[in-house]
Computed example of a mutant assay.
Amino acid sequence: MAQIDIETLRERIRLMDFKRGTPEQVALWREDVAEARANLDIEDMTPTPDEDAMFAMMLDEGVPPAVMPSIILGLYKPGSRQIAA
């Protein structure tokens, strides 16, 4: 399976217009994401290292967790790890 192109994704996210989180909000979101990931591990749905890196980068860029799914759906073709042109 192809790797997620984190840097291209980062570039696209930086061009997007949305309200980015404050450092305090991002710190809380990191805790929430860590808890959600632990639950996925329990359910035997462990994210791949690429997926972990993608979500970490999105938090680095201040993307609110509620916005992440729409960004992913807007940038990727269904069933693909290739960013749509």
Rank of each mutant, 00 (worst) to 15 (best):
2 A>R: 14
2 A>H: 09
4 I>Y: 00
4 I>G: 00
4 I>F: 02
5 D>Q: 10
5 D>R: 09
6 I>W: 00
6 I>V: 12
6 I>C: 01
7 E>L: 11
7 E>G: 03
9 L>H: 01
9 L>R: 02
9 L>F: 08
10 R>I: 08
11 E>D: 06
12 R>D: 03
12 R>K: 08
12 R>T: 12
12 R>I: 15
14 R>F: 02
15 L>Q: 14
15 L>H: 12
16 M>V: 01
16 M>E: 05
17 D>K: 11
18 F>K: 00
18 F>D: 01
19 K>W: 05
19 K>H: 12
20 R>N: 00
20 R>T: 03
20 R>D: 00
21 G>L: 10
21 G>H: 02
22 T>K: 04
22 T>A: 05
23 P>K: 06
24 E>A: 06
24 E>C: 00
25 Q>P: 04
25 Q>T: 05
25 Q>Y: 06
26 V>E: 01
26 V>G: 03
26 V>Y: 01
28 L>D: 07
29 W>I: 04
29 W>R: 01
30 R>K: 06
30 R>L: 05
31 E>T: 03
32 D>C: 08
32 D>A: 13
32 D>Y: 12
32 D>K: 13
33 V>N: 05
34 A>D: 12
35 E>M: 12
35 E>G: 05
35 E>A: 13
36 A>I: 10
36 A>W: 14
37 R>E: 15
37 R>V: 15
37 R>F: 15
37 R>T: 14
38 A>T: 08
38 A>P: 03
38 A>I: 07
38 A>V: 06
38 A>K: 15
39 N>R: 15
39 N>W: 14
39 N>K: 15
40 L>F: 14
41 D>W: 09
42 I>Y: 15
42 I>Q: 15
42 I>G: 11
43 E>R: 13
43 E>C: 02
43 E>Q: 14
43 E>H: 09
44 D>R: 12
44 D>P: 00
45 M>C: 11
45 M>W: 06
45 M>Y: 07
46 T>K: 13
47 P>S: 11
47 P>G: 07
47 P>E: 10
47 P>I: 13
48 T>P: 04
48 T>S: 14
48 T>D: 04
49 P>L: 14
50 D>T: 03
51 E>I: 14
51 E>C: 13
51 E>D: 09
52 D>G: 11
52 D>P: 04
53 A>E: 13
53 A>Q: 12
54 M>A: 14
56 A>N: 13
57 M>D: 03
57 M>C: 11
57 M>Q: 10
58 M>H: 02
58 M>L: 12
58 M>C: 08
59 L>D: 04
60 D>G: 08
60 D>T: 11
60 D>S: 11
61 E>T: 07
61 E>L: 15
62 G>W: 09
64 P>F: 06
65 P>Y: 06
65 P>D: 03
66 A>R: 09
66 A>C: 02
67 V>S: 06
68 M>H: 01
70 S>R: 07
71 I>A: 00
71 I>P: 02
71 I>M: 01
72 I>R: 06
73 L>I: 10
73 L>Y: 06
74 G>K: 01
75 L>N: 00
75 L>A: 04
75 L>K: 00
75 L>V: 07
75 L>C: 04
76 Y>M: 10
76 Y>C: 07
76 Y>G: 08
76 Y>N: 10
77 K>S: 10
77 K>D: 12
78 P>A: 08
79 G>S: 11
79 G>K: 13
79 G>E: 10
82 Q>E: 15
82 Q>P: 00
83 I>Q: 04
83 I>F: 01
83 I>L: 13
84 A>Y: 03
85 A>H: 07
